[in-house]
Amino acid sequence: MSLSPASWKQALISHIQSLACPTFTLATASISGGTVSPHVRTLIYRGFYGELPPNKYNPQPGNTGYSSDLITFTTDKRMEKFKDLGEVEGVSATSSTGATNNVEACFWIPSKENPMIGKQWRIRGRCFVLPRDIDGAGGDTTTKRWLAERLRRNEGGNGEGFDFGREYKAHFGNLSPVLRGSFRNPLPGAPKELGTGGLTPKSPIGDEELNQEVALDNFRVVVIEPTRVEYLNLDGPLKLVWVPVGGEAEKSEMLGKFGKVDGDWREVEVWP
């Protein structure tokens, strides 16, 4: 991992901060019986991994002094979204369904003067569902090492010393009580006629009750590792593309001789 943040990161953060609700659209594709089916969902952006903002309602703070370029969201492992990503956790697991973890996230930032005009960010990358207990006995050491290599310490260094269990619990605590409670709801997507399965639907989990085992077992943090970033400003118009230097996107789009290099990324202005 580069010692400095990705060259596109601060601009993306500043645009997301202008949103009343930081949502984005995530596109995935599932494979069933040889048929590829696209899926699009609206999700809440949860920041960059290792950089949870302070939350006075969250009694479990995350790690401090770290940063990364990994975009995060949260999900329930029982949901279709998890199946679309191959029903696997960690970076070394292989899906038995043939599903791919290649995704695209899209942020739309409307103009205050005219909401029909604005800015769009499209981020392609690899998506990984993080195991709950990376640090525990028999934990996923491959995923832990992969994350540590992509974390930066503010005073220099990588993610050595990062508390992954603490980060997991902090992400859970950063959710609203109602949303935390949803992780102990009955099986998502199941017909209501089947009953609750012994679970209590619509039961919030208070800020001081973050050890609810059923909810914690279903809750997962998910990261997107960007492999191509595209920015379109319709006010300009201006369109920029960032690709990792020497990466597959740079080669496939034949961008190696264009633009400028900043750290690990090549920035190229293209026609809108």
Rank of each mutant, 00 (worst) to 15 (best):
P5Q: 11
K260S: 13
N233K: 11
G236F: 10
G62F: 03
V91S: 14
G86T: 12
T64P: 02
L52R: 02
F172L: 12
N233A: 15
V214S: 09
S182Q: 05
R153T: 01
V103F: 10
G165D: 00
S182Y: 06
T25E: 04
R166L: 00
K260G: 10
W8C: 06
T64K: 11
V221C: 11
S203C: 15
L232F: 04
Q10R: 15
R150L: 09
D163F: 02
G236T: 10
T28D: 03
A27E: 02
Y66C: 03
V223P: 03
H171D: 10
P186D: 13
G189Y: 07
D163L: 01
K56E: 11
G161Q: 04
E230K: 01
A20C: 12
K260Q: 13
V103S: 11
D207F: 07
E267R: 10
A170K: 04
G118M: 09
R122K: 10
E155G: 10
L232Y: 06
P177Q: 10
S182T: 12
D140T: 08
K112A: 15
L43E: 09
F48L: 04
L147I: 08
S7Y: 14
S182E: 02
G173P: 01
I16W: 06
G90H: 15
P59H: 05
T200L: 15
C106V: 15
F164H: 05
G62N: 03
R220P: 01
N101G: 15
M254K: 15
F219C: 10
Q212A: 09
E167C: 04
F82C: 13
A93C: 15
E269Q: 14
E167S: 03
I205Y: 00
N63W: 04
L130T: 07
F107R: 00
E160W: 08
P186N: 14
E253H: 13
E193V: 13
N233E: 09
V88S: 13
G263H: 03
K56V: 07
D207V: 06
K144C: 04
L12Q: 04
S2I: 01
A105R: 02
E155Y: 06
R78H: 09
G156E: 07
E269Y: 09
H171I: 04
G34E: 02
E253A: 12
A105S: 11
W108G: 02
E51N: 05
R153K: 15
I117H: 11
K9V: 11
S92V: 15
P22Y: 05
F258M: 13
P201H: 13
